[in-house]
């Protein structure tokens, strides 16, 4: 496994080029081109804002105002997470020709999907910053230093799951269909359109078992809520857990590596 990781490091230029290709190829032929990276989260946000301020104006408590900003803090990282996993579950099957015919580390493919997702996430950040400024949310530098840490933990967790899912999906194609439904459930089991404190205490225990809960709460605390970042012990625990998930995902991928070329 460690030799595989070292070999992967040698392919970093390839990963870099593939991520760039992914971003370029994605919007080629569309009129707005790169702007879709900004427009997509904006439109998504508009939908949720419409639902929660026009259709259901009274379901969120006062301390979550401005609700659009609160939503944005959770939705932006979530769409990175969910789209990465969905794409990763298909990436080896779609790239089957490569895996069967060209000798190169196959884990490059799911890693590239996750990193391309990260880039889209980063393109959404200026929009988020604009909202922060627009609503006059006080920005605390001490909190903001935690932001890259949260992103890093999410990256590690997403990479681990993407590796695991991509390799397993080759053997069990139904993972792809299962996953899209599971992600819907996962979305609602994460405090993104509500605050963790709103959930009944009986459910809250269950919600804290969800790793993404801690990520969402961290984003909200760092960006939305005033006051110092208090969730850091949980974030660090999650960091350790994510490292474990990554190691496990990579281990499984490494074990299934030889079967991939025959099964895709």
């Amino acid at each position: 496994m460690f030799s595989s990781l070292r070999q992967l490091f040698r392919y970093r230029a390839l990963i870099q080029s593939l991520v760039a290709r992914e971003l370029k190829a994605r919007y080629r032929g569309s009129v707005l081109g790169f702007f879709w990276s900004f427009v997509n989260p904006l439109l998504l946000l508009l939908v949720y804002t419409f639902v929660f301020t026009v259709v259901l104006p009274d379901v969120h408590p006062r301390e979550l105002e401005p609700f659009a900003l609160f939503l944005f803090c959770g939705i932006l990282p979530w769409s990175w997470f969910s789209s990465s996993l969905l794409e990763a579950s298909n990436v080896l099957i779609a790239g089957g020709n490569l895996i069967r015919k060209v000798l190169f580390p196959a884990e490059v493919l799911p890693i590239v999907t996750v990193l391309a997702g990260l880039m889209h996430f980063c393109f959404g950040l200026p929009i988020l910053a604009a909202f922060l400024v627009y609503y006059g949310v006080p920005i605390v530098a001490g909190d903001l230093v935690w932001f890259p840490v949260v992103v890093l933990v999410q990256l590690l967790l997403t990479l681990g799951l993407a590796l695991l899912l991509s390799a397993l999906a080759v053997h069990f194609r139904d993972i792809r269909d299962l996953l899209s439904n599971l992600l819907t459930l996962w979305f609602f089991a994460t405090p993104i359109i509500y605050a963790l404190s709103q959930a009944p205490s009986s459910v809250r225990g269950f919600l804290t078992l969800n790793p993404f809960t801690h990520l969402a709460v961290s984003y909200q605390e760092v960006l939305f809520h005033a006051g110092p970042f208090t969730a850091w012990p949980r974030l660090l625990a999650l960091a350790a857990g994510s490292l474990g998930v990554f190691a496990f995902g990579y281990f499984v991928f490494d074990r299934l590596r030889d079967t991939l070329a025959e099964e895709v």
Partner: peptide, 28 residues
């Protein structure tokens, strides 16, 4: 080792030949 097994297996249709040469070369 270089294998002429499946030619252009890693080409991406949407990007230019130039970029594909780089990516394909790096894959090899």
């Amino acid at each position: 080792v270089s294998a002429l097994i499946e030619l252009g297996a890693g080409f991406h249709p949407e990007i230019s030949g130039r970029e594909n040469v780089y990516i394909n070369g790096m894959m090899l």
